[in-house]
Nucleic acid binder design. Structure first.
Lengths: 141, 141
DNA sequence: TTTAGTGCAAAAGTTTTGCATGGTC
DNA sequence: GACCATGCAAAACTTTTGCACTAAA
């Protein structure tokens, strides 16, 4: 099963492979969109995995800290997503929350230059694209 | 005083000019960075303006809805800022939270194209730049 | 067998809401 | 005078923490 991959990821970051963490991580790897901590917890419980909400939060924090997952922040509450470790941006569907990773990025130099013009250094950038995906376009009234 | 400007802005959006709303708006116009609802409330009370926290929240919601202020979302909690009504991006100092509006933007076409490649339509984009501003660079250890 | 992780329940925070009162247009 | 906005307090949520217990390595 794909639990093996999750196990490897955890081991590589020095995190113990508990059933709860494996459940969180495999669910995030399966998910095509982003998801809140609460929704993830609910889904895992419905799927039969017994785990406390606090554990979900603690696991997500650990995974973010290790760079295994990203946090997305369009709506009012924080969402999480398993992403590639490389620099990338997100294209998210407004309707169904499906996320596509965009690896193409030519903004680094622009960001540096704009920052310099205003006396800023160490300028990092994030780009969020929001649209309506193919499925949701067709599903419209 | 500059209250006049605030009064005009409120009138233009069909919002009644109460003392509380004028206080919120003038404070936001004065602020060089972004600020949370709680911090704004505290500052207004310290400044002698008597107002409830709920009113601050309600006023901020109304102003966001009318496009008078922007919400920024880097940290864990939502921040607000009085911004120009035109399309722009934000360059924020990691340390002191000073914000510079960046009106220059050449991403519209790129965003559309990237969206189209993945079957998305109506693609909007936001760019957030985070860096360290001149003052905070010098203030470093 | 040592150390880290989990569950539960309580706590800490933030934001929203109901309702009587007061102010704006 | 009609209607909107405010204050207060309670409620609804989200996230964090303390502590005894359990499990991974």
């Amino acid at each position: 099963v794909e639990t093996t991959v999750a196990r490897t990821v955890l081991a590589a970051r020095g995190l113990r492979a508990t059933p709860q963490r494996l459940a969180v991580l495999t669910e995030l790897m399966r998910e095509r969109g982003d998801i809140t901590a609460q929704a993830l917890h609910e889904r895992l419980r419905e799927g039969g995995a017994a785990m406390g909400l606090a554990t979900v939060y603690r696991t997500l924090s650990a995974l973010v800290e290790q760079g295994v997952i990203d946090t997305l922040t369009h709506g009012p509450q924080l969402c999480y997503r398993f992403c590639s470790p490389e620099h990338h941006h997100h294209l998210t569907c407004r309707v169904c929350h499906r996320v596509v990773e965009i690896l193409e990025c030519g903004f680094g130099d622009w960001a540096e230059a704009v920052g310099r013009q205003h006396g800023f250094v160490d300028v990092s950038h994030t780009v969020e694209l929001l649209g309506r995906c193919g499925n949701c376009r067709e599903a419209a009234d």
